[in-house]
Nucleic acid binder design. Sequence first.
RNA 1: GCCGUUGUAGCUCAGGGGUAGAGCACUUCCUUGGUAAGGAAGAGGUCGUGAGUUCAAUUCUCAUCAACGGCUCCA
Length: 646
Amino acid sequence: MKINISFPDGAVKQFEKGVNAMEIATSISEGLARKVIAASVNGETWDLSRPINMDAAIQLLTWNDASGKSTFWHSSAHLLAEAVEEVFPGVKFWVGPPIENGFYYDMDLGDRKITEEDLVKLEGIMLEHAKKNEEFIRKEISKQEAITYFSNKGDEYKLDLLNNLEDGHITFYTQGNFTDLCRGPHIPHTGLIKALKLTNIAGAYWKGDEKNKQLTRIYGISFPQQKELDAYLLMLEEAKKRDHRKLGKELGIFTMDDDVGPGLPLWLPNGAIIIEELERLGKETELKGGYKRVVTPHIAKENLYLTSGHLPYYADSMYPPMEMDGTKYYLRAMNCPHHHKVFDAEPKSYKDLPYRLAEYGTCYRYEQSGELFGLMRVRCLHMNDAHIYCTKEQFADEFKAVNEMYLRYFKIFGIEKYVMRLSLHDPSKLGQKYVNEPQLWLETEKLVRDVLIETKTPFIEVQDEAAFYGPKIDVQIWSIIGKEFTLATNQVDFSQGKSFNLQYTNADNTTSTPLIIHRAPLGTHERFIGFLLEHYAGKFPVWLSPKQVEILPINDQCLSFAKTVHAELLENGIRASLDDRNEKIGKKIRDAEVAKTPYMLIIGEKEVKENRVSLRVRGKGDAGPFNPNDFMKKIKAEIADRKSGE
RNA sequence: GCCGUUGUAGCUCAGGGGUAGAGCACUUCCUUGGUAAGGAAGAGGUCGUGAGUUCAAUUCUCAUCAACGGCUCCA
């Protein structure tokens, strides 16, 4: 009996019923048969050896398909488990999935410990098994048989997995001496894995719950060719050079000091310049946007955070209180309560709304020690904060205006790789993580979603990521080493207005409570500058560069003219310096390039004679002679426009 | 907070039971050199901190602090 197999290009071919995807691949070409990893059969990823008994749309998957890669890595995880079981007999396994870059396997080694040397050994064993071309054999098995198998093995983790599986849908996969409970699919045999590296060992809580036992997790990555592994490792090396922690040190942006404390960065002079430029941008933008600036204290009495409702939710994330005159004071972890008090300082009418308060607010958060990460996750942060108090009718326009502000900023910085995340509440956590206002949650979530849809902003929705007082839009970015962070945030708050009894008088002399928008488009200085360091690879655009121009005289005879040019630049507010060291020009250029100074002005006898400067552009080299006034005009225009990019 | 790794000069790193070494940076001198490293000399560290073992600890052991890789968390 024949079945119809259709291909992605629309072609339909007939095959015998029971044909498998490998046979189909072979029928097309031998080259394809060598490369094919798995098959998508009616949208489901299947083993190549699994018989197809019905008409089907199939796609043959190779390493170049995302699901081909994940199948490859999933099989690699099994290969890892096989090697681990050989070296550590009696090991119990939890799960071993593919991830974005590679795979891992979680296991319980009992009292035994695994070391870096073990990883090298395991890599060797894995490659040996790979060379044996061990087939991945799929077997459908009854739940009872599966339970018996893992009971005999004493693997309570697999038994736990089995608990949640339905009889009749359970499969085992075996390669070599290793059998695993697994839904598959897998690559045909281990021989496709030609290169691999076990990258690190880590502890991971069972089922991701910190109350559970911590299992040992081994991370790895594998490839069908050695040169791909080499390229991957090279890419990691390159990424390390862009790491904001490394660049921040090299460029004198920030430092950490044991005596100051973990997560408390000291901004060095170069970092302080960037902060000032960012604040200048923020203040200009907010002034145009109708914001009023305020300045409020970094601490407050306990009562303020009881009123705001923060304490029950976030006490653990705040520095412990200090007691003075019998009253507890907290370092603030957020600025909103202070701003609410500013709003409340004078009576408000509907005519005052929307009322927008902005502050570069300093906050302190007691982040868990293991969470600290360079500038991206710190305990002292400076937030580009503002709170907008508005009526329900004004809300959509205000929220939209904030979103537009994000996008304007992102354009200035050339930020393109981000994801807008609509962060929603989780109804099962009402009253615990989220204020217990089910109706208001749904209403405000709809308000926010509608704004996004109306402005045609691409976004994803994620549950259980909201603030305790309302839904929000977070802008997610990734550090160079792949960690995800919220760069900017735009939040709705239907709760604190009530908690603080904030009111305004309506036209009919009744009173209402405003809705509040919390927004921080530039996030915090710490995270934003950390991100920018990586984004620009340390090569800041001129307006942000701590040093904008380095003047490089060729010899002492040119020094006097060089000093004149230097003074002129300083007079015009350009951050310029003069390299009058007794060094050769090549050395001076190199040092300025390494310091990533955007512009170098080289001044020799020729220039002195002709009253000009020779411009050299960072990363590009000689840009020819300039009249000093023309250069001044050029750089001032670039700074005024906040021109981005090289 | 949990699991694991690391901690030597300003930076990057080597070393190792008998109180330390390189390159770069720094200082001084020589060199006045045209688009990514001129030469020489010098200075700089109680080897993260505390305790233990030892005749002797920077090296071994333990504790502690911090950083790093994950997990959990992330207003």
